[in-house]
Write a protein that binds this DNA or RNA. Sequence first.
DNA 1: CGCAGAATTGATACATCTCAAGCTGGGTGG
DNA 2: CCACCCAGCTTGAGATGTATCAATTCTGCG
Lengths: 248, 248
Amino acid sequence: MAHHDLQTVSHECGDCPIRHRAVCARCETDELQRLEQIKYYRSYQAGQTVIWSGDRMDFVASVVTGIATLTQTMEDGRRQMVGLLLPSDFVGRPGRPTAAYDVTATTDLVMCCFRKKPFEDLMSTTPHVAQRLLEMTLDELDAAREWMLLLGRKTAREKIASLLAIIARRDAHLKLKSAKGAIVFDLPLTREEMADYLGLTLETVSRQVSALKRDGVIELEGKRHVIVPDFDRLIEETGDDSDGGYLV
Amino acid sequence: MAHHDLQTVSHECGDCPIRHRAVCARCETDELQRLEQIKYYRSYQAGQTVIWSGDRMDFVASVVTGIATLTQTMEDGRRQMVGLLLPSDFVGRPGRPTAAYDVTATTDLVMCCFRKKPFEDLMSTTPHVAQRLLEMTLDELDAAREWMLLLGRKTAREKIASLLAIIARRDAHLKLKSAKGAIVFDLPLTREEMADYLGLTLETVSRQVSALKRDGVIELEGKRHVIVPDFDRLIEETGDDSDGGYLV
DNA sequence: CGCAGAATTGATACATCTCAAGCTGGGTGG
DNA sequence: CCACCCAGCTTGAGATGTATCAATTCTGCG
């Protein structure tokens, strides 16, 4: 079941779907050739754990297709998602031997993995990978800080609206459509995963989704398929600055 | 009042107090000389705003002495602190023209500023500044993610204990003492700033501090001077893994 | 001395959690 | 083909933690 995904992914960096956004985005042809030599693909089925926090990790990777999550868990089981990894996002930290978070595939997932040691060597000898990684890390830091505002200060309804807006925007971005007027997308997360991301319980997520539906902010077909008739209306519900001209 | 601070700070990178931890940590002598040419010091009094979010920012900087905060504010005034900047921490983002957050001095503050354009040139022509900045940014990202767990899942009491533990640890680190046994430090934040950091109200902060005091986890002399008789006891109150061998 | 900002404490309101009961839709096996 | 099952989801009722509103009380300082 997972194998056919693998087969649809090109093994040539030249026509890789994430070539222009991933950590390799700025590489010259000679750098790409070095990357080709140390890379390999791995696929995971939806629900599978990619890595457990604390495990030894001898590769770093880019998400090629599918979605993965980064989560932290407390001793008593409380969970907080700290990252949502979409195609082109980077996994792992050069120079660190073990994983700091649980990484889980929420959809079928294909990753382009690089053996860590050679990747680190490449980083220290050529500038472009490190430059791009710095850029991506700074973007992630901004995203994390925006999420801190959400977790610390937003109401449950604002949290849900914010998550829907982010998914809608990213989805529109992947499909190269503008995020205006009516938007349609599928939720890549269960209610429980949404709760883990938003710092809520799954019951509260369910209630607030129902409320947004009742108020006409969204429409649902089944549990996962979302229709946003008026994107600006959704943005109003997030509590954010309306001009919210995302830095992306 | 602020000026004498400036005078106590060496203008020679060679004996700068943050030389070994800041963005310049890995620089060779020739790189340091280039940095010397584009740097200048600025000082701020406690309470002063360094930059407003959205303002044009034509420098980046390192905190030399004192403490600054990064905060985000919603239209209706809800505030969330998203960063606490201690000596050696970096402010600003190369390649971005405007500030993304409000930066405020919570104590008297001295910053070592670099004109942005020359700094960016330096980054693209020599590797050591960019390498160090990547490392620092990855550390900040980890800290932000740890804070996401705190904001999303911890109780008010756990939040306070966590903040105290972090300040105690950083303080011990600056003083080169081990964070074991009895610890003494001064809170660099008001109750309101603590609240903004923890996603609470100042009243809840006050109540939980009183509760920790009542339960003997901490002792207070005045409002700001904190004594932690048993650091392990404090750690238990944070809800974190007790082995919490910080990656620092 | 007395003022102003900071902090504490109290009483009450309310948002979200918790516990619990049902619902829904897709898959499985008889 | 139907009955059943089960994970995912919804909804309800009540408990609880934190926010809100409102007085005081500290503390440092002119």
